[in-house]
Amino acid sequence: MMFVPLTLTIVLLWLALAAYVVHLIRGGRWVGWVATGLAIAAWGTLTGELAKRGLEAGHWPLTNRYEFGLCFVWAIVAVYLLLEASWRTDNVERRDRRHPQRQGGTFVLAVALLVATWAVTRPIGERAVVPLLPVLRSVWLQIHVLTAVVGYGAFGVAAGLGLLVMFRDRVLSLRLRRFAHENSVSEMPTEEQVKRAMERVVALGFPWLTLSILTGAIWAQKAWGRYWGWDPKETWALITWLWFLLILHVRPLRRWRGRRLAALVVIGFGVVLFTFIGVPWLVRTVRLESLHGF
């Protein structure tokens, strides 16, 4: 039987998730390295799959919901791995630069797998490689969709870190109860450190989402003669933008720090998912008109 890279990607993502879970609960350096290695391997095979699909189709794999879903997973894992590589340098107190923080991996990989599962369960018709529609034959397609992919990916990672902020204490008590050892507490990042990492990723995603909406508006002006039409997709992109703008505005307010802010970020990812997955459903259910294919 031939190895299908996408199946391999999903298997590797599940294995990485399992390793991250073990690392989160038990700690330990080598499990962490295995988890990171598996996540890198999953990202690599997904990159291969996307490249293969792009070469086969003769255009960037960004033209339908299935392809966007795969790119979304790709971006979540990529942003997370970049964060993992850089997060160690933020740990001022520990000064131990050899131990990257991997505790968010469990939640981020769970988010990535949620999107991946949705993507791979698309009907065959939606997964088929088809020629580009004339309206999609524009350089703005790549710019608009790629920027959205990066923004959404960052918000996926932020949601994973938000979940870690929310469940950190429970994880810590589980660690101490089951696998009590002297490093149990010191290995876990403080709530403040996770919160800062989460904010950092939100700050990464927000300009990319802004750029995506802006380039989408420019493309819409070129294709349809209007930069904004209150199309359901456009409206929900604006709602997503406003939600994260709200997060950036409540962040300095004392009563919204910590877990409440994390909850807002997690809900924000729900808004992202609704914009991506829910809007086509809304259009069908309420019988709205939309010019957006996905």
């Binding site: 209150w230 359901p232 409206t235 929900w236 406003l242 709200l246 307010l253 309420v286 008109e289």
Partner: peptide
């Protein structure tokens, strides 16, 4: 005030979300 700005952002986004559930008359 910053919290007023946050409340207004929330109101605008909720109204946009509700409005998006109805067909729009162009």
């Amino acid at each position: 005030r910053l919290d007023l700005a946050a409340i207004l952002i929330f109101v605008v986004l909720v109204l946009a979300a509700v409005g998006s559930c109805f067909p729009q008359l162009s």
